[in-house]
Design a protein around this nucleic acid. Structure first.
Lengths: 257, 257
DNA sequence: ACAAAAGTGTTGTCGATACACCCATGG
DNA sequence: CCATGGGTGTATCGACAACACTTTTGT
């Protein structure tokens, strides 16, 4: 198998290219069907899933590495991406997992093999537009797809913790920063934006107060057009005023839900 | 010199004990004479200062490493310590600086020497009680002392950035968490607590509103005793109600300055 | 016409600010 | 006795939550 050759090559030569002992794990959030989703990959030879992970090239900025990994998994660049925590427990790695994978491609590792050493991982979280993403697996995985935040498959190592802490961070950030731009299509309605907030915060918000508060932030453009076709009254479409949006990102919102 | 032997040993054997490519830099804040201070060490053989740095033993949790480094510099355990950012620019290390130090102890490093490789550093910040600290230098440094945040000596590499970002984080955290416990003596007056807040935020606060807000958090015990001796009316002494203080740490404050 | 969804308005509460007043102490 | 700092009280404003009303649309 050509793919397993690639994996073999990674095992054999990764040490040459990658910064030792450091990995990156990005929790990629998307929004679809009124549900918050995470992009996960199923790793080969085991029945375990993983958030979008990877390694840092020896001369690569960690933020660039995170961006690259995100692009490899989603096809997207220019995305909201932020480091949120470092996971530095010396026992977080799962030796058996690696040994098992290596056996499948015929790589025989000794005890000092680079991948079996301790890894510290840098947690990033990303917000992406679900419909623009083309989930792309690589030679390490045989599946890459979205999963509902409330219905997750079994995760490798401490990826449950990583995901949980990313979600917690997202919820906190939500209070002080605008976020819809990265998760919604260009044009969207106020109820759609509200659903996004409700989904992330996991609680109902008052329709009318939400609208007024959101408009109060002064980061939205109301378009002439309305969303037709649905039953009932047609809602306005909005887009983000990028200039004001980015100012709000820098300076923060009043906040408090 | 015995000390230089130690440094030599570090150069020669550090690779055996420490996790490669990872360092820890802790910005240690204290409060004294109504000024916010940082604990810095002056490194040997150069006219540059550094925040409290160190390395991670191969089987040590990064949080434990940060705690250990803090104890080595201050003599204190059980302290408020929190990771706040990872600095991962591949060009952040200063090769010349290391080479220069090594030359002074007669260590001759080749190009692949561990210390000259890329290091990613984990930024922590700590809040400590100034009067309890015994600033302690080690074999790498010839000075260790407090410096006013507004009057800093020249700092090594990106330690200026690290310090700035730590300060920014502290200011943000101040809005959502109680902090005085770690920076003030056991007993303190309301004006003293206010000075602390004013110093960190670098702005004046209204005396009366501050008092009411602070008392409203319900984390203080008013003591019978008052602070005598100063001119003018004797202010009450307070101490923190630790139980409520820690609950507030976990659950956050209302906040907003 | 009516149910359901969307848009707009009104009111009450609470916290934050601004400021006025009183108390204690040392010079 | 008065200047200075500390403690307590009150008015005002604005943000936010709760809730009423009107408008639009498909069936």
């Amino acid at each position: 198998m050509v793919e397993n050759k690639e994996l073999y090559k990674f095992f054999a030569q990764g040490e040459k290219f990658f910064q030792p002992g450091i990995s990156i794990d990005s929790v990629i959030f998307g929004f679809h069907n009124n549900q918050l989703k995470v992009l996960l990959t199923k790793l080969k030879y085991v029945n375990l899933w993983s958030v979008a992970g990877g390694f840092v090239y020896k001369d690569e900025h960690i933020d660039d590495a995170a961006t690259r990994i995100l692009r490899e998994r989603t096809g997207l660049s220019n995305i909201f991406l932020k480091q949120f925590y470092i996971f530095g427990d010396p026992r977080r790695s799962d030796r058996k997992f690696h040994v098992n994978r290596m056996r499948h491609v015929g790589w025989d590792a000794d005890r000092n093999y680079w991948l079996l050493k301790r890894f510290i991982t840098i947690g990033y979280y990303a917000l992406v537009n679900f419909t623009n993403v083309v989930p792309t697996r690589d030679y390490m995985s045989d599946l890459c797809d979205w999963y509902d935040i409330h219905d997750l498959p079994p995760l490798i190592m401490d990826h449950g913790d990583i995901l949980g802490r990313a979600l917690e961070t997202l919820r906190t950030q939500l209070k002080y920063q605008p976020i819809g731009y990265n998760l919604l299509p260009q044009k969207f309605t106020m109820p759609e934006l509200q659903k996004l907030y409700e989904t992330i915060l996991d609680k109902k918000l008052d329709r009318r107060n939400f609208q007024r508060k959101m408009l109060g932030y002064d980061i939205l453009n109301r378009l002439e057009q309305r969303r037709k076709g649905g039953a009932h009254k047609a809602p306005y479409l909005y887009s983000f005023n990028l200039k004001k949006y980015h100012r709000a990102l820098r300076e923060g919102l009043a906040g408090g839900w």
